[in-house]
């Protein structure tokens, strides 16, 4: 048990180190996330020339939302992740299979290490720029701050499980990009990354809430800006935890099915 946890920690460190090794890439990403933060912020602010609040979000909450989403892009890893699919196609996955740690667990530990790096170096600076340039709002108290951090960590796990899941079809499909693209589209809209779900018409919001996607972006942000508060916070965290557990279980089952199909050419 202890040995396994130490192995997890070591793998997480490698995940961290992999991204820490490229500071220029971090700077470039920061530049892009920040510029998009300004653009998206001004677009959404234009709505508040005519409205004072939309679905519980006022201008300050919306700006805070915008900069938080930009800070979460790298941390939660909203855009594509095809590492697993590439390993399946190349056959490298066999080396993962012979290791004493399940590939799902190893990949999760790795991703948590990665997200720790991105949270500190791609998340915090973006949020700081936003806070310096605009009047953003902060969580109401220490409890809300704590809940936000827990929620953000759960968001990473849900996002990871979802990414792992859409990589698994590579066991069956030689070219897996199509499914990954569809997955990315769905997650970016329904996670509330593009527009807050509070702005959606009711029917679209209902669809979004039936999916795991809000657990990746919208829930931590709702906790941060106070759109979810009090006992509702506990409910929101429980929803995230349930999605994380459910998706990880699904990953495990689908991965096992895929491995049964796996044929690797000599070597």
């Amino acid at each position: 048990m202890i040995a396994a946890l130490r192995a997890d920690l070591e793998i997480a460190r490698r995940g961290y180190a992999r991204y820490a090794a490229y500071p220029v890439a971090t700077l470039a990403g920061l530049f892009t996330n920040t510029l998009f933060g300004f653009m998206r912020g001004f677009v959404l602010l234009a709505l508040f020339e005519q409205r004072s609040e939309i679905g519980g979000y006022d201008a300050a909450a919306t700006l805070t939302y915008t900069w938080l989403t930009q800070a979460l892009i790298a941390t939660v890893f909203i855009w594509g992740w095809l590492d697993l699919a590439i390993r399946i196609r190349s056959g490298d996955i066999v080396t993962d299979l012979v290791r004493p740690i399940h590939p799902l667990r190893a990949a999760l530990a790795n991703d948590l290490g990665r997200s720790a790096y991105h949270a500190v170096f791609r998340g915090v600076p973006v949020l700081l720029v936003g806070a310096l340039m605009f009047d953003l709002i902060a969580p109401a108290g220490p409890l809300e701050w704590f809940a936000f951090f827990v929620s953000a960590a759960l968001a990473v796990v849900v996002s990871f499980a979802f990414r792992f899941l859409y990589n698994i079809p590579a066991f069956w499909l030689l070219d897996f990009r199509g499914i990954a693209v569809l997955a990315m589209i769905l997650s970016s809209l329904f996670s509330g990354f593009v527009i807050p779900i509070a702005f959606f018409p009711d029917w679209l919001a209902a669809i979004a809430h039936a999916t795991p996607f809000p657990a990746m972006v919208q829930i931590p942000i709702d906790i941060f800006v106070g759109a979810v508060r009090g006992p509702q916070i506990a409910v929101a965290l429980a929803v995230q935890a349930a999605w994380a557990a459910g998706l990880l279980l699904l990953c495990r089952v689908c991965f096992a099915l895929g491995v049964r199909r796996l044929v690797v050419q000599g070597g």
């Binding site: 677009v43 959404l44 709505l47 005519q50 409205r51 939309i54 499909l173 030689l174 070219d175 897996f176 990009r177 199509g178 499914i179 693209v181 569809l182 990315m184 589209i185 769905l186 970016s188 809209l189 593009v194 527009i195 702005f199 959606f200 018409p201 679209l204």
Partner: peptide, 29 residues
């Protein structure tokens, strides 16, 4: 199969893109 999914994906991703604009205009004229 993959090409068809890819093409459809590119087609729909752009509609979701536009869906964001429609969501904006569902709140303001």
């Amino acid at each position: 199969t993959s090409f068809a999914l890819d093409l459809a994906g590119n087609f729909f991703i752009s509609f979701l893109d536009f869906a964001a604009i429609l969501v904006i205009f569902s709140n303001v004229p």
